[in-house]
Design a protein around this nucleic acid. Sequence first.
DNA 1: TTGAAAGCGCTAACAG
DNA 2: CTGTTAGCGCTTTCAA
Lengths: 336, 336
Amino acid sequence: MATIKDVAKSAGVSIATVSRVLNGSANVKQATRDAIQRTIQELNYMPNALARGLQKKQSKTIGVLFPDATSYYFAEIIRGINTCIQQAGYRIVVSSAHDAADEANVFLSLWKSQQVSGMIVMMPSTHNATIFNSTQRSIPLILLNTAITDGADITITIDNYQGAKEITKHLIEHGHQAIGFIHGAPNNHDSEERYRGYQDALNEGNLTRSSHLEFHGNFTENSGYRAVISLLNQSEKPTAIFAANDAMAIGAVEAARQLSLQVPQDIAIVGFDDISTARYINPPLTTMNVPVLEIGEMAGNHLIRLLEDNRQVVTREITVPVHLVVRESCGCPKEK
Amino acid sequence: MATIKDVAKSAGVSIATVSRVLNGSANVKQATRDAIQRTIQELNYMPNALARGLQKKQSKTIGVLFPDATSYYFAEIIRGINTCIQQAGYRIVVSSAHDAADEANVFLSLWKSQQVSGMIVMMPSTHNATIFNSTQRSIPLILLNTAITDGADITITIDNYQGAKEITKHLIEHGHQAIGFIHGAPNNHDSEERYRGYQDALNEGNLTRSSHLEFHGNFTENSGYRAVISLLNQSEKPTAIFAANDAMAIGAVEAARQLSLQVPQDIAIVGFDDISTARYINPPLTTMNVPVLEIGEMAGNHLIRLLEDNRQVVTREITVPVHLVVRESCGCPKEK
DNA sequence: TTGAAAGCGCTAACAG
DNA sequence: CTGTTAGCGCTTTCAA
């Protein structure tokens, strides 16, 4: 593999000069520059990013850290990040973490060992608020969907609360009084916020909350399924159910079918996320649309800005609005 | 950020000794080793992977290169790769490429600049067979879903041909004589192989092929939709359609609905991939299941083996079997 | 406008 | 068992 030395020798100049044209320094005679560029072509030379990174103390890579379970978001967010970041000359290093402890390790290794220039971390668990202490951190950090509100330069969060409130209100407006909620995974920030929105909507609608309207799930289809099956043993049944995500809503619809409950006539079911499957199930799912790709792009763009504009330290919290998509599973006429 | 020097100084030894314990060399007195390890803890020291990579001439990262359009596969494959690779101490660098030319660039930059230890490339376009010339390549390469059969150490390909043949035969066995085919993107290897399987199934079933049974799509739902809409103007209509992927099949089902054609009674529709949505559409889609996660794991495992076992140069072509999932869109009773 | 030289943090002979 | 030293390929003063 050709190195800068080879280029220098072959072009009859010093490595310093080669380095200058590599880095676009102005102080090189045009003729020299041309000659060097030609030699670079001939030798198929490409600078070694490791050596460069070692010297410059920055790797031009950005670390992306995800929870282990593949969330529906994963691919789209990566794609969103990649679009902006790649053209700015950065590369993505992806890692996943099993749990909070593991996450801390991966974070540290990405930062200290891999020398990433910046990080985008998605960690909706509410367990690990202490990891990202900004006092000891020297690289920009963007947190996605997290409960942690400080320590990051920027946090980008879905407006779970408003979204949940809105979709619950939609149910209320259309006459539902007994509205159930299926929780997502425990200690998950998204789930908790959606629950908060649900509660407040009930309160504002003067509906009483009740523990047998609440079901515990973990964001999987199967857990949504089981939640609705458990209704069998209940005397007092909800007329509508808001599942904390679409996967569970889909499981719930499936369970309803097996219990011979008509959706939405016997029971309305709504979700959150607007995953691609949502519009195809029967009946098509009413849900809150989350602009996932845009979140990725936003994260990428902001990180690049942080990196290139010398890291202005304005901590910012961005809340991404979601919007209601009324389909048929709620039994309401489209209006919005 | 603490360096090896800091550790050495703080522990009262030379950097060579620190390096030895870092790399698990046997020739260090236990007491010294302990002291150094303690210092490492204290200083929160982690070795700089850039410096190490520069010296060792290998970065312990593996490059993953994907086409630009997010295929359904993307996330799952990454996840599959990541599981095995991460525990072997490697990291993934993901990149995407718009087209063949861009791909060559990204490939080169990953290899020469980023100094990746190995690569996994997914590039189903049949246009760029020359890029990965093994004579000039010095790192192991695994190609996924590709037309290119040499130049890589290992290729992992879905058994598109057999799968397509099987699902077409399934249609034939259940009485269909006029079976349409919706092509995927032009010059796409998967699409071409599926087409080949379709053709051979027709031939073996003594069915005549006809150009007005073929429709041109690009793997998007919309293109499947348009294909079926175009049937309107045809006098001779197929009784069944095999779409080269599920997305197009879903679009086709949608179009059929709009044309008031019953699926499967008026027209049977089947796909390929078994994406998660397939079982939820109405009617549930009969399709070929592709074990995507497994493919990723396989790629990761093989690459690690190539990397750690000193790169035995046995070129291998792995074909991943797919299996028929009979649901309702084909109108056939479940049997398999 | 160019070159010489120091050094980024680490590993790997080579000596001792 | 441990230390000294020479680089890995690059950027960046400092001189010329």
